[in-house]
Structures are given as structure tokens and as C-alpha cells.
Amino acid sequence: MKVADKPMIDEDGEVRELTDEELKKFRPAHEVLPAELQEKLGMRRRGPQKDPTKERITIRLSTHVVENFRATGPGWQARIDSALKDWLKTHQL
């Protein structure tokens, strides 16, 4: 029996280990899944970073602020950055 003919699950319901030959056939999901499915799964590839001057930091914010920004959906961290930039326009440090 060829490896390709072997069932993936045995009579006890256990999944067998994949062979090196089988693993070599694997391809990245972005190569094999339709674009529509990739979009639904959030698999879009990121383009070049738009603002490479951003710095990763740790900051403690109130739960109220974080929950409200998160509730606005994806991009909520960028919206916090934008809100802080707007605040800086009207406040002297």
C-alpha cells in the first residue's frame, strides 16, 4: 500500500504521523487557498510599513479607554495614535 493510499485515521480514531514524503507536498496556505477565503480568514499579506517611524512601547491605559477603542474594530491602536497626535496639536508640553 502506497503512503498516499494509507488512511489518515486508524480504526481507533488516532491520526497517524505524516511521512517526510507527505510533508514535502505541503504548501503555504496563501499559495493554495482562494483569495476570497484568504480575505475572510484575515490572511492578507501586509504591504510595506506605512510609517516606519513608529516605536513599540508598553503603556498602561484605563480599561475604559482600551475597551472603547477596541470596540471600534481592527485598527484601534492606530486610532489611539491618531487621537494622541490630535491632542498634541492643541496642547503644549
Rank of each mutant, 00 (worst) to 15 (best):
K2Y: 14
E67T: 11
R46N: 13
K50I: 09
K40E: 15
T58L: 03
F69Y: 09
D20N: 05
E36V: 14
R56I: 04
R79P: 14
L88E: 07
E55A: 06
A71R: 07
E21F: 11
K89G: 04
Q38F: 09
S82G: 07
R70F: 00
K24F: 10
D5W: 02
R44H: 07
F26M: 03
D51E: 10
E36S: 08
H91L: 02
P28M: 09
T19S: 01
E31W: 13
D51Q: 08
I57D: 13
A35C: 13
F69N: 05
D86P: 08
L41D: 14
M1F: 14
K25E: 13
Q49I: 01
T53E: 15
R70M: 10
R46A: 03
K54M: 13
E21Q: 09
L18W: 15
D51C: 04
I57Y: 04
S62G: 07
V15D: 10
H91N: 00
Q92Y: 01
A29K: 11
V65M: 04
S82N: 12
I9D: 02
W76A: 01
F26H: 08
Q92R: 01
L41R: 11
R27N: 09
L23A: 10
H91R: 00
K25Y: 05
F26L: 08
L41Q: 13
F69P: 13
L84Y: 14
I9C: 00
Q77C: 04
L33A: 00
E39P: 03
E36C: 01
G42A: 05
R27G: 05
V66P: 04
A35K: 15
K54F: 11
T90F: 00
P74T: 04
D81Q: 13
T53A: 10
G42Y: 10
G13H: 12
L61W: 14
I80F: 05
E31C: 04
E31G: 04
N68H: 12
G47C: 05
K89C: 00
A71Y: 11
K54A: 11
D5F: 01
P34T: 01
L37S: 08
V66L: 01
H64V: 00
A71W: 13
E67P: 12
E67S: 07
M43D: 09
T72F: 02
T90D: 08
E67N: 12
R44V: 03
M43K: 07
R45A: 11
R16K: 10
H64Y: 01
Q92G: 02
K2C: 06
P52K: 04
K6Y: 14
T19A: 03
G75K: 09
K40D: 15
K24I: 12
A29Y: 15
K25D: 12
S82P: 07
K2M: 06
T58P: 05
D10P: 14
R79E: 14
K24R: 08
K54I: 12
P74I: 04
P34A: 01
S82I: 00
E14R: 08
V66T: 15
K24L: 07
H30Y: 12
D86T: 08
L37K: 07
R56K: 07
D10C: 10
